[in-house]
Amino acid sequence: MLKTFKFIALLEGLSLLVLLFIAMPLKYIWKQPELVSQVGMAHGVLFIAYIVFATVLKSDQKWSMKTYALICIASIIPFGTFVMEKRVLSNA
């Protein structure tokens, strides 16, 4: 299950970057909003999956509340899931 979570973390992080650095500029600078709804929906689903998996893994991996909080916070910071995977999950 940890391997699946790492994969979801990668996808969630990538979807956030695509949303912030490709879809949003297309919408607000070049007036092309089409990509925001598609990437936004994918990112939303991946974000929910990420949080659900983190919550399930908290007890399975015996993460402290601090570790769990850091993992959840990492999902809302650009590049956060990548840093979290290297620093926190590589030790798990």
Rank of each mutant, 00 (worst) to 15 (best):
K3E: 14
V52H: 00
A74N: 11
V56S: 05
E85Y: 09
K66R: 02
C72E: 08
F7Y: 07
F7I: 15
L35Y: 06
I22A: 11
F21E: 05
V45M: 10
E12C: 04
A54M: 13
V18H: 10
G40T: 12
L10E: 00
P25N: 05
L35W: 10
V52Y: 04
C72D: 03
A49Q: 03
T4N: 11
Q32D: 00
I8P: 12
P33T: 13
T67H: 00
K62L: 06
V52I: 15
K66M: 06
F7P: 00
S37I: 15
I29M: 11
I71M: 15
Y50N: 09
F5R: 03
G40K: 03
T4L: 14
A92S: 09
A9H: 09
M24P: 05
Q38F: 07
K86L: 05
A42V: 14
I51H: 00
K58A: 11
A74Y: 06
N91D: 03
F47W: 12
S64P: 04
V36Q: 08
E12G: 02
L20D: 01
S59N: 13
I76S: 01
T67A: 08
W63K: 11
I76F: 05
A9T: 09
T4F: 04
K6I: 13
L17T: 06
M65H: 06
F79M: 13
L26V: 10
V39A: 03
L70W: 13
I51K: 05
V45I: 15
L20R: 07
M1A: 09
K3P: 02
L57F: 06
P78T: 14
P33N: 05
P33W: 08
S37D: 11
L26Y: 06
K66W: 03
I51W: 03
F47M: 03
L35T: 11
I51T: 09
M41E: 04
F53V: 04
S59C: 00
L14T: 12
I76K: 01
F7A: 11
K66E: 10
G80F: 09
Y50G: 06
K62Y: 02
W63E: 10
E34N: 15
Q38C: 07
L11H: 03
L46Q: 02
L70C: 08
Y28M: 13
A69E: 02
K62S: 03
L26R: 01
F7G: 06
V36F: 10
A74R: 14
F5M: 11
T81A: 05
I76E: 04
I71T: 15
F5G: 00
A23E: 07
A92C: 08
A42Q: 01
G80I: 12
